[in-house]
Structures are given as C-alpha cells and as structure tokens.
Nucleic acid binder design. Structure first.
Lengths: 190, 190
DNA sequence: GCTATTAATGGAATGTAGTCTATTAATCAA
DNA sequence: TTGATTAATAGACTACATTCCATTAATAGC
C-alpha cells in the first residue's frame, strides 16, 4: 500500500538517503561515539528535527544505514557443489568477520545502545539479530537433511553457540579471523 | 605496601563504602540508566568530585560495587563427590543465572559502557570477564584430567562457547534458566 | 603555631542526545 | 485563490556525565 496522502507537504526522500550516507560515512571515519547528531545533520544538509521525524535515535538511523550495507556482505551462506557444510559455513563466517573490519565497532556501539533503549533493542533484535540467527539455523537443518550433520544435534542451539562466541569475542575486542572460525567450528562439528 | 603518606588530608574510607553501597542499592532499585551521579552522591552524602577522585566513571564505580557482591554468588564451580563434571557445571551455571535475576540488567549496562570507553573495557575484561572465563577453563581441564571429558576437546574454546552463549542471551534479554543451562551443555558434552 | 600537601566541597562550565515550539514551505481539494 | 494538512527549518530548552576551579579541611614535619 503506497498510502497516498491527500494533502500536506511531501516527504523529501533525498533527506533520508543523505542522512543515512552521512551517518555511515562519519561513523566509519570517526567512530560511533565521536559523531554527534549535529555533525550528521550538518553533513546531510538538513535540520535536526528532520532526522528525528524519521528515526527515534541515532542508533536507529545508523542501524538502518549499516543494515542496508550489511546485506551486501553476508546475504546467505552459499552451498557450493563439492563442499561440505562445515567448509561452506567456515567461509561464510570468514566473510562476516571481514565485514566486521569495517563495521565491527559500529555494531558494538549498536549492541551497546540496545542495552539502554528497549524500543531499539526490540528493533535491532527483530531486524538484525534474529534473521542472522535463523539463517544459520536453516543452513544447519539443511545440512542435517543432507546427512552432513547428525540429526541428534540441536540446530538452534548450535546457531546460538556460533553467534554467542562471535558476539563475545566482538564485544571483548578479540581478533575475529580465520583461525577463530576454524577453531570454533572444530569444537562444534564433532 | 601500605604507602604511608607523609602529609596531606587522609582519604575518607567511609566515603568509598558509602558510594559503593549507595550506587548498588540505587542501581538495583531503579536500573543503571535511571540513576544519576547526582543521586548517588546525594545518597552517599559526599561531594560529586569525591566520587570522581576514586573512580573515573559511573561504570567503574558500579563495576566495583557489583564485583564485590558477585564473588559471593559464584566463586568457584564446586566439585562434589559422586557428581560428574557436567552436573556440577550445570548447577554452577544455574547459580550464576539466579544471580543475574538481581544484577543482570546492571551487567548488561556495564557491558554496554565498555563499548564506548576503552579504559573501562580493559578494566572490565581484566577484573571480571577473564577470571570467569579462566575459572570454567580450569574446571574443564580438571575434568579432562579425571577422564570425564575427552582430551581431544579444546577447553578454552568450550569456555568461550559457554560464556558466549550466556552473553548472547543476556544481551538479547532472553530467559537464562535451568532449561537453557541444560540445553547448552547438552550440545557441548557429546 | 606554621608550612607543605593532599582531600573534600560546592558550584560553575562544557558537551551532547533528544524534545519542544514557532515559522515557513509544499501539497491537495474546493 | 483559499484553507487544510503535513514537512522542514532554526533555535531554544532539558537532562545528564564529566571537568574545572576556588575554597576549605585535615594531616605530617618543623
């Protein structure tokens, strides 16, 4: 439903894209905490209230900006012929970790924001956390169907373990690299 | 080394304990974000600067206050005769989860604070995170010595997986209960 | 007592997220 | 063109953590 309005000044779509790209650029350059709302709206060339007309908080804006980017990086764990699910999963994790070289600090800041803003937490969980968890769960379930993972394993819990380890290391600023991906999966695929 | 000072007004030790207990009480009652520095110093009956003479930030103060309490709850995973390590560990996790009914929200707030304050992150990691991770690792290593856990398992990674899952659920406000502890260990002790 | 030293105090100052308000701009319908 | 409606803008305002500063208090050595 396009929800055509019958009257009123139309929303300026350019303002939204300008705000998102300004936010993403500034945050990547200076770090989430160092970027003020004032700087974002100045960079985007719009009024402060225009930002708050579209997003409730800085975190909501940055989440949306990062979210659109992130989906380019790690859309789906790809099944390739001739590769078992463990190898595919490891390659997928490495791709995510590479993305975190760019946006890991921002993601940490968003997770932090979610801890004192329950509305944002809910949005973050629904739009970001849960889809990614489900993606891995579905991948593992398919692996079970194909006989590459024992039916006895709990796919949901395995997905939690993977994401948990990943969050834990991210939030404690430990290195997320190929070695970690391999060691992690070594302990889960047994 | 007691570091006896030769001159100068001595530090008022009561101010520290008053600040810690005021902070802990207020934070448990109202939640970390709702408690202002002004309220803490008023409750403790000291000047604002006195707080900042001892701690760098609200997070540092609250961490110390919670830390002293926490050690009462979950000091060591106890070995009991006639119980295997998995059972002992499950009971230990349940004890931690019970503690989180009291201080879980505060802990979430501290983890959040660590994400935009690298000095605090380092302190939090050294004083809180790492000791707890080591505790489980040592426990698992002892279980390996006793033949209750295969030598082939990677005790450090298992400890990461346990803490990661626990952080992940905590930070996403999912229920940490007996069922979760059991399901978690089911997927690790295989 | 007197001096040097360090702590404690009250209050002002700074910086920032988010809110509120009054004014102006763009659109539709009549 | 006029009125209703909604968006955009500039700027004031609030609340709070943290810092800064000048003043006063408590101690040791003399």
């Amino acid at each position: 439903m396009p929800a055509r309005k019958l009257a009123g000044r139309p929303v300026n779509a350019e303002a939204s894209t300008a705000l998102k790209s300004a936010a993403l650029r500034l945050v990547r350059e200076n770090g989430y905490e160092k970027v003020s709302i004032a700087a974002i709206v100045k960079e985007a060339g719009v009024a402060r209230q225009t930002l708050y007309n579209r997003w409730n908080t800085k975190a909501d804006l940055v989440l949306e900006a990062v979210f659109e980017e992130t989906n380019n990086y790690a859309a789906e764990p790809l099944w390739e012929e001739g590769k078992d699910c463990r190898t595919s999963l490891e390659e997928f994790l490495v791709k995510i970790f590479e993305h975190l070289n760019t946006d890991g600090d921002t993601l940490r800041a968003l997770i932090a924001s979610a801890q004192h803003d329950s509305a944002f937490q809910s949005s973050f969980y629904t739009n970001f956390v849960l889809p990614r968890e489900k993606m891995i769960t579905v991948f593992l379930l398919r692996a079970q169907e194909r006989g590459e993972l024992p039916q006895s394993r709990n796919a949901e819990m395995l997905s939690t373990l993977i994401h948990g380890a990943f969050w834990y290391w991210l939030l404690n600023s430990r290195a997320l690299d190929v070695g970690f991906a391999r060691d992690l999966l070594s302990e889960l695929f047994i």
